[in-house]
């Protein structure tokens, strides 16, 4: 099963995604939670805590900076970037915008 949760700000996307992910995991389904928000907060709702949520390196950023070769397999990318949390859910962040980039509208 592959599900994407979308909607207006504040409508409950992250909360819904987190509960979906943990419910699936509790039913025994190996579950990957992908935070595709450039302001990633999904780790908080999944119960990873703030420190682990903030420690995640975004896959896209690592690729852009050359830390990571393109075309790694999904498993390789997850081994490098995903962390495991409550109920065994694995979490990876796709692309975070962490700092101001003036002059780049």
């Amino acid at each position: 099963m592959k599900v994407a949760v979308v909607g207006k700000g504040g409508s409950g996307k992250t909360t819904t995604a987190a509960v979906l992910a943990r419910t699936l995991a509790r039913r025994g389904v190996p579950t990957l939670a992908l935070d595709c928000d450039t302001n990633p907060n999904l780790g908080l709702s999944l119960g990873f805590g703030e420190e682990r949520t903030e420690s995640l390196i975004a896959v896209r950023d690592a690729v852009d900076e050359g830390d990571q070769e393109h075309a790694g397999s999904a498993e390789e990318l997850l081994a490098r970037f995903a962390i495991e949390g409550p109920d065994g859910v694995r979490l990876a962040v796709v692309s975070a915008i962490q700092n101001p980039e003036p002059g780049c509208p």
Binding site: G9, G10, D37, T38, N39, I97, Q98, N99, P100, E101, P102, G103, C104, P105
Partner: peptide, 14 residues
């Protein structure tokens, strides 16, 4: 501005 960091960090609030 829209929610999150994208527009703000790309100068839309300059």
């Amino acid at each position: 501005l829209p929610g999150g960091t994208r527009q703000a960090f790309f100068g839309w609030g300059r």
